[in-house]
Amino acid sequence: MESILIAILKAIIFILLFLTFSAVLTYVERRISAFIQDRLGPNRVGPFGLFQPIADVVKIIFKEEIIPANADRTLHTLAPIISLFVAYSVFAVLPIGEKLVIDGKEIKLVLADVNVGFLYILALSSLGVYGVTLSGWSSNNKYSLLGALRASAQMISYELSLGLSLVGVVLVSGSIQIDEIIRSQANVWNIFYQPVGFIIFLVSVFAETNRLPFDLPEAEPELVAGYHTEYSGMKFGAFYLAEYTNIITASLLVTAFFLGGWYFPFVDIYSGLNPNLSAILQVIVFFGKASLIIFLFMLVRWTLPRFRYDQLMRLGWQVLLPLALLNVLVTGLVKILL
C-alpha cells in the first residue's frame, strides 16, 4: 500500500517537474532565439517576461478548437494524445538521481526501475511517430499528410542509427540498465570511449525530435505547419508540449548515455555526503548538463538551414548507418582484444 502511494507521489512530482521544465523551456527558447536575432523577446509579462508561459497556457486553453469538416474526428483527437502519452512515458524509466533515504527507507529517483530501460526507451520513442502520422492522415489536408509522411520516413531512417549508436555504449558499459550505464561512467565518461557514437546519437536525436536542421515534418516555408496545420487550442498545445518534453528527454538521454549522467566532471562530489543531499545535487547536475545540451539544440536551430528531403535520407542511410555499424564493429573488436 505504502509503496503504491510512494509510486503515485513520485509520478506526480516527475510529471510536474517535466511540465514546469518544458514551460520554462518555451520561454527560454523564445528569449534566446530573440537574442540571437538581436531582438529582446517576450519581456512584458512579469519580471523579465518570466510569466509568459503561464499567459501562453491560459491563452491556449481558452482558444477555440477547430476540427476540419472532412477530418477523421476520432483519429484527429487521438493523435495529440498519443504524442503526449509517448513523450511522457519515455521518462518513466529515466533515473534522475540515485536514491533518497527517508525514515530508513530507500526511494529510488526513478519512476519504473526496469532492467531493460534502454530497450523500453528505444521502443517507445519510435511509437511517437504514430501521433504525427495519424495527425497528418486524419486532418484531410495535403500539407499535414506530406508532413506526416516525411516524419515517418525520417523517424524510421534515424531510429536505426540511434539504436546502433547506443549499442556501442552498451558494449562499453556492459549493461542495458540506465542507472548502471550512468554508474559505469563515474570515472571516465562514455563520450571519450565513444566519440563517433556520441555524434551519431546527437544527430539522430535532432532528427527524432524534429528539430532543425531536420524539422522537415513542420517545414513552415513549404508545409504551413506540417502535421499540426489543422490543430488549434489545447490539441495543438499537446503537440507543442510533447515536442518540448521530447527535447528534454532527449537531452537527458544524451547526458545519461554519453556525458556521465549525474557525475560532476573530474571531481567526485558525492562521496561522504548525506545520501539525500547528494541525491538533490545529482538531480541538479543531471539537469544542468541536460540544459547545456538543450542550449546546443537552440544554437543549432539558428545556425543550420533545413536539410532537403533527399539530403536527409542520404545522411541517414549512407553516412550515419554505415558509420554506426562500423562503430559497433570496432567497439566489439576492441572489447574482445583488450
Binding site: 537574442f35 540571437i36 531582438r39 544554437l299 543550420l304
Partner: peptide, 13 residues
C-alpha cells in the same frame, strides 16, 4: 557556425 551564433547573443539589441 555555432560560435558565430553564440557570439550573436551578446550583441546589442
Amino acid at each position: 557556425g555555432l560560435s558565430i551564433t553564440f557570439r550573436q547573443i551578446f550583441k546589442p539589441k
